[in-house]
Computed example of a mutant assay.
Amino acid sequence: MPLPVTHTQPAGPTAGPPVVLVHGFASAGTKDWPAARWAEPLAEAGRETFVVHLPGHQGGPAADDAEDVTTPNVLRRLAASVPSGQVDLVGYSLGARLAWDLAATKALEVRRLVLGGLSPMEPFAMVDLAAARSSVHGGPSPVDPLTAAIAGMVRDQDANSLLNLVEGLARQPFDPAASVPRVPTLLLAGENDQMSQGIERIAALVPDAQLRHVPGDHLGALASDEFRAAVLEFLGV
Results as ranks from 00 to 15, higher is better:
G117I: 00
R201S: 15
H137I: 00
L162D: 11
G116H: 08
Q194K: 14
S135N: 11
A107K: 13
N160L: 07
A151M: 03
P181I: 12
M153L: 15
A178V: 04
L118W: 04
L115H: 01
V180N: 06
V127W: 06
A131W: 00
V166S: 09
V136D: 07
I150L: 03
A125I: 12
I199C: 06
L113G: 07
P176S: 12
V166F: 06
P173F: 05
G117W: 03
V183T: 10
A177L: 05
R171I: 08
M153Y: 01
L165N: 10
G198T: 05
D158W: 08
A203K: 06
K106Q: 15
S196Y: 04
L115A: 09
V183E: 03
D144L: 09
G138E: 08
P142W: 10
V114W: 02
P142I: 09
D175Y: 02
A170F: 04
D156P: 00
E167L: 00
S134R: 12
D175M: 12
E167T: 05
S134L: 12
M153G: 02
Q172L: 14
L163D: 02
S134Y: 00
V180T: 13
A189E: 03
P181W: 10
R155K: 14
L163N: 02
S179A: 15
T185W: 02
A130E: 15
S134W: 01
V127A: 10
A170Y: 05
L113R: 02
E167G: 08
E191P: 01
M195D: 15
N164A: 04
L169W: 04
N160Y: 05
A204S: 13
A125R: 15
L169N: 09
M126S: 15
F174E: 06
N164E: 09
G190K: 04
I202N: 06
A159K: 04
L162N: 06
P176C: 13
R111K: 14
A132T: 01
E109C: 04
P140S: 13
A177Y: 01
P142Y: 03
P140M: 02
A178W: 01
A203E: 07
P173E: 13
